[in-house]
Simulated scan of single mutants.
Amino acid sequence: MWEWDTTRLWKKVREFVQKNDYSSQDPLTWSRELEKHCYGDLSYAQVQASNDMEDQSQVEIRRDATFVGVYDGHGGPEASRFICDNLFLHLMRLARENGAFSEDNLRLAFSTTEDAFLNLVRRTCRINPRIVGTGSCCLVGVIWRGTLYVANVGDSRALIVSLDRSNKIVAEQLTRDHNASIEEVRQELKSLHPDDSHIVVMKHGVWRIKGIIQLARTIGDVYLKRPEFFGAFPKFSSISLCRPVLTAEPSTYARVLQPNDKFLIFASDGLWEHLTNQEAAEIVHNNPRYGVARRLLKTALHIAARKRDMPYKHLKPIEKGIRRHFHDDITVVVIFIDYHLLGNGISVPELSIRGGFIDIIGPSNSYIPQVRGPLSEISNPVT
């Protein structure tokens, strides 16, 4: 990707607008407008901005559970692709061994995936040196036995949207943004590194850990976590580290779903750069389910274009790579919760969807702990 140059960027924009039919669909978007899961419907959409799609994601629909994963990579797609290939399988193995989902299982799935990626880096760093500098946010949600489990590292975000007593929608953020732009995160870092006055540094108007990265928790980024790789990433080889400055420890959350819970939104931070929690909730609530994830995505892209004083139709023909100067890769998954379906044992086709990739329909080898008994018997979280 060529370096940032405003004059050159706008020249490129004009060239693309002149030679492309911008009335057509955005070629960098992908969506599944509406699918069934065991507790309702879901809608799923993505847009690519980078040369290599760094947002990886998946939805796994089974008879008794729904799994969502959003993995927002940086420094390259290696870490986010690895998570997409491995984390769900680790979680299923743990569920099989323990006979249940739990927050502890989620934490262990994260740490197991982190360790496995470290092993990959050790095996391949000589032939692919830049892999030491790739990492990813990781956001996971599981609905099982009437309970929602969520875990995350990084700043992808999950919301649950409910109706209050006056029938107004309320958007509740379920995840912590592990980002140095947040005062609470900076204070946490300073308390963990009291002898390092430069643990967070303002650089180019943005708070960064050691002047390098905004994210305080990730999977990957081994050059900031493992002493054997300190100084191994050429771009930041001059940065002196005495001990790890990032962690892969997730924040977790569990909640028994209630009749007033209406839907969930899982999205990478590219969406939240342009929409507030409440704005996203209102869009979903006030529009048909069909295609609502794509509607959220397009709303964010319209706003991103307006920030550059251009209409979205002029943004659509701009190719990947150059598009990254206007917006990030974005993934959005909306999960509707039809409470009357919880515990009813309604059969839906098993389905595995990876954003923009292959769908797999049919029997799966992935184990999901089975639900038995009416909803009244399974309404408490398993922890």
Rank of each mutant, 00 (worst) to 15 (best):
H193K: 08
R295C: 01
R8G: 03
D269R: 15
D155H: 12
V153Y: 05
T29W: 03
D195V: 03
G355N: 08
P349D: 14
A100D: 05
R176G: 01
L89T: 01
D309T: 12
S237A: 15
H74T: 08
R354W: 02
L315D: 06
D261M: 02
C84F: 00
G345A: 08
T331S: 13
F117I: 04
H274V: 04
E78G: 11
C38G: 07
S352M: 11
Q214I: 07
M310K: 14
F82G: 08
M1N: 12
K203T: 12
M1L: 03
R157F: 01
N152R: 05
P244M: 05
I209D: 06
K19T: 13
K262H: 09
T134G: 09
V201H: 06
E279Y: 00
A180V: 11
G356R: 07
K298W: 01
E97Q: 15
P227L: 04
M53W: 03
R226A: 15
G270P: 13
D309S: 14
K210H: 01
R186S: 02
L351G: 07
C125K: 15
E60Y: 11
Q48K: 12
H37V: 00
I83T: 04
L28H: 11
N51I: 12
A304P: 03
M92W: 00
A180I: 09
Y149T: 12
W10E: 09
L241K: 10
T276W: 02
T29F: 02
L89I: 00
F236L: 02
G355M: 01
I265Q: 09
T29E: 15
G141P: 10
I318S: 09
I199S: 14
V371M: 12
D164S: 03
T299D: 09
F88V: 15
D52N: 12
G345C: 07
F16Q: 11
R157A: 04
P363A: 05
R81C: 00
S268Q: 04
H274K: 13
A232K: 15
E54Y: 01
V68S: 14
S43E: 06
Q25R: 07
C137E: 06
S162E: 08
W10L: 11
V333I: 14
S376L: 03
V59Y: 08
G355H: 02
F233Y: 15
K168V: 07
G205N: 03
V161E: 09
P369I: 05
L163S: 11
D72W: 04
V17N: 13
V70H: 08
H302A: 13
P259V: 07
K19Q: 13
A304S: 14
G141C: 10
F336V: 10
S156D: 03
Y312F: 14
R255P: 00
A180F: 13
Y253F: 11
T113V: 00
Y39T: 11
E54T: 07
Q56E: 15
D177I: 06
K210R: 08
T331Y: 07
E279R: 14
E282M: 10
Y253A: 03
Q370L: 00
I83L: 02
K298F: 00
H314Y: 07
S376N: 11
H327I: 11
L224Y: 13
L189W: 00
R308L: 01
D21W: 04
W207S: 06
D64C: 12
G356I: 06
F16E: 15
L375Q: 09
D72K: 05
G343I: 04
V153K: 07
V284W: 13
V284M: 15
P369F: 02
L241I: 06
V17F: 03
